[in-house]
Amino acid sequence: MQLVKGLFKIPAFLLGLFLFAATLALAFLGPLVFHVDVSTRVGDPYMAPSAAHWLGTDHLGVDMLSMLVMGLRASLYVGFLAGVVATIVGTLIGVYGGYKGGLLDDILTVLTNLFLVIPTLIVLILLSSSMDKGRSLTLIALIIGGTTWTWSARAVRAQSSSLRARDHVALARINGFSTLEIVLEQILPYLLSYIFMVFILQTATAILTEATISMLGLGPYDSISLGKILNDAKTNEALIGGKWWAFMPAMVLVTVIAFSLYVINTAMEGVFNPRLRK
């Protein structure tokens, strides 16, 4: 508890939290303040910002602010889902391997390292381009999560194997706890704050990854996303035409989300990670 209080005294953490809360507010409270509609053309293509359309319109004449809100929601969704998938898969494999040690751990480590050297982006691009129609937002999130979990697995494995040497784990064993119970009761609780930090990082990474592949034109077919807005702006010559409102806000948003999550993570690490604390 005391640690949590300490966290709220760190300016960087507060800044990160504020920025992240602001993006959440824009995504979910925005529609209460202004009208969000991405299916009707409200004016000419690339209308400059005005009182009626605060961020102008895009290449089709759709309200840009509406596009942003929907894109932001999609990005957060991808980030969250991919983050959850990567954290759960990575944590399970990492904790189990770290605790068990031996051959199983070796196999898992090789597997982890294999996934680590496979460039996620290339796999994503290959997968995405081979599935033109089925490329839904959820699928993209799952692919991102399914290829980036190795990072959490490695981080968690190291922590878990150092816990294995603690006597409370040995005591649980001679109390007759099963391996699964030990992992869930004796090891996971010690890693919770750590896993939460890993989750935040995984989320940030997923949001950036989605933006990258969407910008390459391999975004979801069923949804708007911040990356797709950028891609649209690029393919419809908004950059050359100096139509800044078509790409700047999306770019700023992606940066702000990723930045705020990284800052939150760094601050938490400073507080929770005992080696930095000591």
Binding site: D167, L171, A172, R173, I174, N175, G176, F177, E185
Partner: peptide
């Protein structure tokens, strides 16, 4: 382990910080 039991060396690291001492004693009955 029903026949051979132990008291470990470092009492500070012998218990799980997330459960009460009493509940951990009770888990011996498993």
């Amino acid at each position: 382990w029903r026949q051979v039991q132990a008291v470990f060396q470092d009492p500070f690291s012998c218990f799980n910080q997330f459960f009460t001492i009493r509940s951990q004693l009770k888990s011996s009955f498993r």
